[in-house]
Design a protein around this nucleic acid. Structure first.
Lengths: 246, 246
DNA sequence: TCTAACTATTGATCTGGATCAATGTTCGAC
DNA sequence: GTCGAACATTGATCCAGATCAATAGTTAGA
């Protein structure tokens, strides 16, 4: 009944720290303050940038959750990520000076905007900022490679299990409960992201609940058996077979 | 019968240009020369770095093709990319100072090695190097997001079509024929990369050949109908339906 | 040159998840 | 509150691609 609460965090995120764990001196921070702009809040469904737009800025999420998508020539859309407070949007835009995807607010979202021109100047002046930016890009590359593994290899159960665990870790990092949280995104979004039909997402969540691994009530999820969730595995019954044989 | 020819390129790749399209002044190039090391050749199957190894260097491919893989907790392996001359390896390692995947030579490969410590110093001194590195990272992020779309959404035919087209574009960029080339990697590797069983790769290639879109002879591939390949689409017959209705 | 071990193709069968269909639930706007 | 639209669940059926199986072809090494 309450307005849905967006993920508020970044309490430690002054503008000057760019939502990043940066160790800067006071003059450096002052320097950043003049450049990083706090954006007006975006509402649910609004786009922050669109695929093909001229690349102008990188954004750091301050509050709320954002999804990013890419569209191919056939018009098929794929969700490429969900972004939490403290994470960076637009890192795929430096390449051709055009955003390679679209970013859409899943709830009320506020951002820091870092104009790229300025960022380039600053990179030269603030080595720690440059390093942090590269680390974040590196992290994104690693994350996406792991996502490729999930998409290519796993069953519906494994995909959902992996998805919930990764959400859990990120809520935890933000200081929220790792075992109980709200799915900001719709089932359709989850399905799109994981390469599953909505119906399969629904069925699989039900199945996991029946098995006592999680509890689902609408958007509210509770993880009851973290090991069970992370151990999801095509061959769980193989050890049992061995017992029988013996 | 001949020893398989590795992809030789980077004729324009002096060590000092790091296999990258960099516009540097002469003193800058001299500076780079002292830092970038030309590696001894790696043989087919040898690893350049392994998942979990301490991150020391970024590598630029000079000749030959490399595959990268990630392994998850269950030991499932996923090929995350094939790397051509001029492309960079190890970009996912900056994050935690550990390589987040393994790189393996698919044929005889030679590399440039750029020690990261030095790279960090240089980034401050050579803005163009820093920008280029960031562009490459950005490119990799965008590529992987597109791969997520391919993995999540497309049929076996679309996957293979997309795969062949992307190979084609890269051969073209290296100055080779865009319509006739050799698949350096095995069918198993292709299947793993695209999330398909080997048998499906084989069958689908045969099907595409029967349809006259490509010609396959072992590892040798000829693209006969580029548009047919790129237009692979679940709903190709829908326009026809409309005609019938009218 | 021969052999053993990969690598690739082709066929037969099976199945997980897509698709189609119907119903139930939630939520924002009024 | 109540209406309509979007979102979610559940059931029935179907099919693309996995898996199992057998056969070729290719390649490295003795």
């Amino acid at each position: 009944m309450n307005a849905p609460m967006s993920i508020q965090s970044c309490g430690n995120c002054g503008l000057s720290s760019m939502c990043l764990p940066l160790a800067l001196t006071q003059p450096e921070m002052t320097q950043l303050d003049g450049i990083i702009k706090k954006s007006a809040p975006y509402r649910r469904g609004e786009s922050i940038f669109r695929q093909g737009d001229a690349f102008t800025s990188i954004y750091a999420v301050r509050a709320g959750m954002v999804k990013t998508t890419v569209v191919n020539a056939l018009g098929e859309e794929q969700i490429t990520g969900f972004y939490f407070p403290g994470e960076l949007l637009g890192l795929n835009g430096l390449h051709e000076n055009v955003y390679a995807g679209t970013a859409i607010a899943l709830e009320t979202v506020s951002l820091c905007e870092i104009p790229f021109v300025k960022l380039d100047e600053l990179s030269a002046l603030l080595p720690e900022l440059r390093r942090q930016l590269m680390r974040q890009m590196s992290q994104e590359i690693a994350d996406e490679q792991n996502m490729m593994l999930v998409l290519a290899k796993t069953s519906a159960e494994e995909k959902l299990g992996n998805f919930l665990i990764r959400l859990s870790l990120r809520f935890k990092r933000l200081g929220f409960s790792a075992t109980q949280f709200r799915l900001t995104m719709s089932r359709v979004d989850i399905g799109n992201y994981l390469g599953l039909a909505v119906e399969t997402v629904s069925r699989t969540l039900t199945k996991l609940q029946q098995r006592g691994v999680i509890k689902v009530a609408g958007k509210e999820v509770t993880i009851l058996d973290m090991d069970g969730l992370s151990g999801l595995n095509r061959n769980v019954d193989e050890p049992a077979k061995l017992v029988v044989v013996g």
